[in-house]
Structure formats: structure tokens, C-alpha cells
Design a protein around this nucleic acid. Sequence first.
DNA 1: AAGGTACACAACCGCATTTTG
DNA 2: GCAAAATGCGGTTGTGTACCT
Length: 294
Amino acid sequence: MGRAPCCDKANVKKGPWSPEEDAKLKAYIEQHGSGGNWIALPQKIVLTLCWNNICRLKRCGKSCRLRWLNYLRPNIKHGGFSEEEDNIICSLYISIGSRWSIIAAQLPGRTDNDIKNYWNTRLKKKLLGRRKQSNNNSNRLSASGQVDPTKDHHMNSMEENPYPQTLSNSALERLQLTCNCKPSKTLLLLDSAAFMSNMDVMHQSSAGNSDSTTFQAQLDELISSKAVVVAPKNHQVQMAEFDYFKEVGASSKESSIWWTNDVDAKSASSNSWDSTSLLQSEGIFQDYILGYNM
DNA sequence: AAGGTACACAACCGCATTTTG
DNA sequence: GCAAAATGCGGTTGTGTACCT
């Protein structure tokens, strides 16, 4: 038995919202709130009075919710992503994948839809382009700095599909972004809590300090100077400050697992974040470091 | 100027999770 | 505890616009 539709599809308007619809929805929500029931909301909004009939807002409740959250809500920023925001998005994408709502939570005024669109249309190309370029450069060189012709063929095939199993696009992109780092970097071992603490400090300072070093510069500095961080155990409190890390959980067990190592075992599902459980904290930060070293 | 193509973004769809009765 | 409904989320599609030939 299938689910009942959330609204009467035949009597629901689709497509772009008109200014009048926007205005009415905005006014209603600002005055009454969503009432905790988006499905019923459109029925409550009087759009126009035509003849003796009252015309209600002919929109699906889900559509109203989306319109409000992504467009009408106060303090929404559109476009004009800063370099710092780029860095945060890239870093988080590499760390946690396409969990746009979590990424959006770290960028005030940005919506998950906006970030998703921005990633898909611009940032991904920018970064994968950069990776591809750097892959070409680095793989042509052997460890001795000589051109290694055997690498070319390997990388060509790798670029086509380096992981031919059923990895999601998100996972593949993240692999593309993170693979091919210098071997020494793969050995980086960072204490998760200490790293998060540093991240927290960096995040705060860069957020309120636009004229100073960028988020990326600070992270680069951390990476270069603190490849190994001693693990104080009392950073659990700070961990709670990161919503997305909460999900990963402080209770890491096989923490040395790097998500890419075990992705096959989880790839049966289509969800790009099905490796969540694999992303135990240290794995994430190792990944984060790898990804950031682009 | 016209047609084709690429890009950006708004909106929809369907599934998973959470809430409610 | 269960089923239905509501909500949240990520993937995908549709459409308008800019750019190129």
C-alpha cells in the first residue's frame, strides 16, 4: 500500500511563485507562524476575494514550507559566497558528504538548497578542476621527481572511474577530492577532539575577523604544524558544539577506519551518507586533512 | 538576428525519519 | 506498539538567462 499524497495534486499550483503568493505566505507566517502544520497552512491563507468566493492559496504544504525556508524567511542570503564560505563548504563536504542541511547550519543565512546548488553548479567544478590539474601534475612525477609514463595510463583510467563499484556520486567526488594526496599526509593522525577544538577556535576567529588570515590559511597552518595532537580527554564538551560531529558521535570505536576503506561494505545503499557509521571521528578528521590538502 | 548550448537557481519528487493519535 | 500523517532532506528536473556561433 502506497502512502497517501500530502495534498490534492490536481488542485495544487506548481511552478514559480507569484509575488502575490509570496506576499501572502510571508505575511501569514509572520503573523501566525506556520502553526506547526504546513499541510494545512495553504487552506488558511486567503489569496484573493473573487466575486463571493474566497480563493485560497493553491499550493502544496510542502511547497509552502520550502518557499518559506529557502526564500521568504528573514535573513536569507543569496549568492555572493565568500572565499571563507567556499572553504567551509568544501571542507565539510569532504568530511561529511552531501549533508547540506548540516553544512548550511554552519553558514548563517544560507539554506541547504542554496549551498547544494552552489556546490553542484560552481564549487564542484572549481575544485574537481583543481584536483584534476594537480593530479596531472603530481602523477607525472615519480618520487624522484622524474616523469613517470606508467602513471598516465593509470590515472586516465582512474579518472574515468577509479572505484567501479556502486559508490554514490557524492562518495566518488569526495574520493576524487581526497585521493592522490602525498603519502606522508595519509599517515597524519589527529586526535579528533583536539582537532575539533582547534577547528572551533579557527571557525570563530575567522568568522569575526574578515581582514585577518583566512579560514584556509589557519587550517593549513594547523595541518603543517600540528600533524600529531596529543589527546586530552576533556574535549567532549566542545564536541557538542558541532552539530554535525554530534551525529558522528564521540563514541568512536574502530576509529582508525577511513571511510574510503570500508565504503564497499556499505555501498549497497544508494544514500551517499550511508558510510556515516564508518565516519568515526578520527577517520573524519584524517579525511578532512586529506581533503584540505588540495 | 536566430538558434543552440551552458549555466544558475527555484522548485518538485520521493524516500527516510519523526511525530501523533 | 502500531499505523498514518507530517516533516525533513537530498537528488533531480524545469525554466529563465547569458553567452557563443
